[in-house]
């Protein structure tokens, strides 16, 4: 369904020196810097698959999706979706795909939701009977009834997102791209949206490519994940595999009384645990990663308590979050890619 070969996207960013002088100079002599947002990625997604596409902010997820939808033309490499090259036959491709882009609405801002759907019906040339049947189903699953008469601009984020989801699936597209569809939503809405996506896939065999930072989304919806880091795919495989491959991995976050900066790993832990890079959100935490085949969590905690005064600690278990954190954090790229090759 989706075939991607050696796909690359480089952005040219105009550089200029600060201040007025820089601005004037840049008028005559522009310097460009190339940002490689996506680097030689390959993927092959079959019809009916639901794939989680994950990576840190700026990893290149949205850029990839824009190339798959035809919004962006790649710098090199090729994409085929259902046999069509999206950026060359954009309109033809558009009738077979649906998309939701985070917080940007695809609906018509000023008109009631129902009328938005009516317009989409004509734009996508959906037969009347099919349209009625689909809408009825969506209204039930997503609880849209009370929203249909309200203009999009008056909806709350959660309400809007439910309406967006319905709009993306309304014409029964073969592929749907969801770029952070659950961002900023409360749990109840997320649950509803996940149920809807799964139902669409079960009933119509819709292929789904989903990016999200919520690992719960991934665990519930996807059978397969592709992890992208700094423009390169660093993992592509089933969630099951990654769990068994890294399932023995544990991470413990310690909050120390002393400053985290002065932390030195106790000697006995040196060979079997590893200090993960500090996260930006919680710079005061020291995170240790290890395999429970080599050392037990209790032992790690014990050793740490002997050397430092620990104020608090959290043990992250082998959930997908932890594994992904591992993969990003330790730059396991080589190891994983190596695995993939044979």
């Amino acid at each position: 369904m989706i075939v991607v070969k050696n796909l690359e996207k480089h952005y040219k960013i105009a550089k200029r020196d600060p201040g007025l002088r820089g601005a004037i100079k840049s008028l005559f002599h522009r310097k460009f810097e190339t940002k490689k947002a996506v680097k030689k990625i390959n993927m092959h997604i079959n019809a009916g698959e639901m794939v989680g596409y994950i990576g840190a902010n700026g990893a290149g997820k949205s850029t990839t999706i824009k190339m798959l939808t035809g919004i962006l033309t790649p710098t090199s490499g090729e994409v085929k979706v259902n046999g069509i090259i999206p950026y060359e036959n954009r309109q033809q491709n558009a009738s077979h795909i649906g998309a939701v882009f985070g917080q940007r609405t695809q609906l018509f801002w000023d008109i009631p939701v129902r009328e938005s759907y009516e317009l989409l019906k004509h734009i996508y040339e959906i037969p009347q009977a099919q349209y009625e049947e689909t809408l009825k189903e969506f209204v039930e699953v997503l609880h849209l009834e009370p929203l249909l008469g309200i203009p999009v601009r008056q909806l709350s984020l959660g309400q809007k997102m439910r309406c967006e989801l319905a709009a993306a699936f309304l014409h029964r597209p073969k592929v749907v791209y969801l770029d952070e569809p659950t961002i900023g939503l409360d749990v109840a809405v997320k649950v509803r949206i996940r149920a809807f996506i799964k139902q669409m896939n079960a009933r119509y065999g819709t292929t789904v490519l989903l990016t999200t930072h919520d690992m719960q989304d991934i665990e519930e919806i996807c059978q397969r994940i592709i992890i992208i880091d700094d423009g390169s795919v660093i993992y592509d495989g089933s969630i099951q595999d990654i769990k068994s491959q890294f399932g023995d991995k544990r991470v413990i976050h310690f909050e120390l009384e002393d400053a985290a900066d002065s932390f030195v790993l106790p000697e006995t832990l040196c060979d079997i645990t590893e200090v993960l890079p500090k996260s930006d959100e919680e710079p005061h935490l020291v995170s240790l990663s290890f395999s429970n085949k080599h050392i037990s969590g209790a032992e790690v905690i014990h050793t740490m308590m002997n050397h430092y005064s620990v104020a608090d600690l959290t043990i992250a278990d082998a959930k997908i979050e932890t594994i992904v954190e591992e993969i990003y954090g330790r730059g396991m790229k080589k190891e994983v890619q190596h695995e993939e090759i044979h």
Binding site: R90, Q91, F101
Partner: peptide
């Protein structure tokens, strides 16, 4: 600028037409 133009590019109709008719 706000990224709203992308929306027109994933519709199966001429983007200029869509933009004008909006």
């Amino acid at each position: 600028r706000p990224g709203k133009f992308d929306r027109l590019l994933i519709r199966p109709i001429n983007p200029l037409f869509h933009f004008i008719a909006d």
